[in-house]
């Protein structure tokens, strides 16, 4: 039995990762980690670019870092939200379990998005051009 599809169509997306082409993380030099949400379309972008859904405080909670150290960039032309913050664990140290920081996108990708179907997706375009 495949629970993902019903007679009403595919199940609605549940996580940021479901709405993205790719969610990735990587070192940006030895002392920073950077993450990108490459969203599939403008609708997905609107959700993750909405500061009521995703902002520095949310990232601070997910990654247990100080909100004041987080840099967050919203790039509507690419449907991308990019997040950078100092690496909490020094690269290559005894407690560094992810040398390239290449698997640290997972908590971000697993973030639940507000429940919505294509019919209820807001069609208005919020202002996401700040920054």
């Amino acid at each position: 039995m495949t629970p993902t599809t019903t007679v009403d169509g595919p199940a609605p997306p549940r996580t940021v990762g479901d709405l993205a082409l790719e969610v990735r993380s990587k070192n940006a030099g030895p002392f920073w980690v950077t993450m990108e949400l490459f969203m599939r379309d403008a609708d997905g972008y609107r959700i993750v670019a909405d500061e009521a859904f995703l902002d520095e405080r949310v990232i601070a909670g997910l990654y247990r870092v100080e909100a004041g150290t987080i840099q967050l960039f919203r790039i509507p032309s690419l449907n991308v939200v990019k997040i950078s913050f100092p690496r909490p664990v020094s690269q290559g140290s005894l407690r560094d379990r992810d040398m390239h920081a290449g698997q640290h996108h997972v908590p971000l990708a697993a973030l639940r998005v507000p429940h919505m179907t294509p019919e209820t997706t807001p069609q208005t375009t919020p202002d996401v051009s700040r920054g």
Partner: peptide, 16 residues
Amino acid sequence: PYTVAAHMLYETVNPF
């Protein structure tokens, strides 16, 4: 245009 513009994001803290 997408792949070239997106490469400014790669391994950089600031994409601009």
